[in-house]
């Protein structure tokens, strides 16, 4: 799920070829989530089927097809940036991928994104704490104890996520005072020319 959304986010910045999407995704997430080309094309095919992306013109001389977002795709990306990552149905990796992309794609309000996520995670932490409150510390035997330890594990995991978000926020604040222009990037030029610039970096 996060790969699908990640590719959409990259395409929101500029149209790209499949191979280019793959290398962009990997370099921005520090190579932590390697993708194979097959995965990228399968995902692109599904995105096209769902009306979120479309081919940007025909194949070039080397037979490559560039993809770009449809309006619907653009709206989907916008939703991803503004809504907190859902805890229920996705692995937490999605949040990490989302942030890694958000700081590299221009025009994303990262501070807002961090705050929205933190509030959502704190609500989850409040729910967990309610469960702890509901079961008394003293009563119950081993099963009760086991349940407590499980709850505590979830509590500490959610807390770690919030601490990481705090850290991201202060890191970004420091970055902003040091280099205010760091996130503006030229998005006007064609995607061919962008990829060659990036390759030479």
């Amino acid at each position: 799920m996060s790969i699908r959304r990640g590719l959409l986010a990259l395409l929101a910045q500029e149209p790209m070829y499949g191979a280019q999407l793959r290398s962009e995704f990997e370099s921005r997430t520090g190579g932590t989530w390697p993708l194979n080309v097959g995965q990228v094309y399968t995902t692109l095919a599904r995105l096209e089927r769902d009306g979120l992306v479309e081919a940007a013109g025909g194949a070039d001389d080397e037979g490559r097809i560039g993809y770009r977002l449809t309006d619907q795709g653009r709206a989907e990306v916008q939703r991803w940036w503004t809504a907190p990552v859902d805890r229920g149905d996705t692995p937490r990796d999605e949040l990490v991928i989302k942030l890694a992309l958000a700081v590299t794609v221009p025009g994303v309000d990262v501070q807002r994104l961090v705050q929205t996520q933190r509030t959502a995670t704190l609500r989850h932490l409040q729910d967990l704490t309610k469960l702890k409150r509901a079961s008394s510390e003293e009563a119950g035997g081993r099963n009760e104890l086991a349940w407590f330890l499980v709850l505590d594990n979830l509590v500490f995991a959610a807390e770690a996520e919030i601490r990481w978000l705090d850290h991201v926020e202060s890191r970004l604040a420091r970055e902003a005072t040091r280099a205010p222009e760091v996130r503006t990037r030229d998005t006007e030029s064609s995607f061919d020319d962008q990829s060659s610039k990036r390759a030479s970096r």
Partner: peptide, 14 residues
Amino acid sequence: HEARHAAWADRVVF
């Protein structure tokens, strides 16, 4: 500073 403790509250204000 600790979210784990803030979570005991009915409402958390940032």
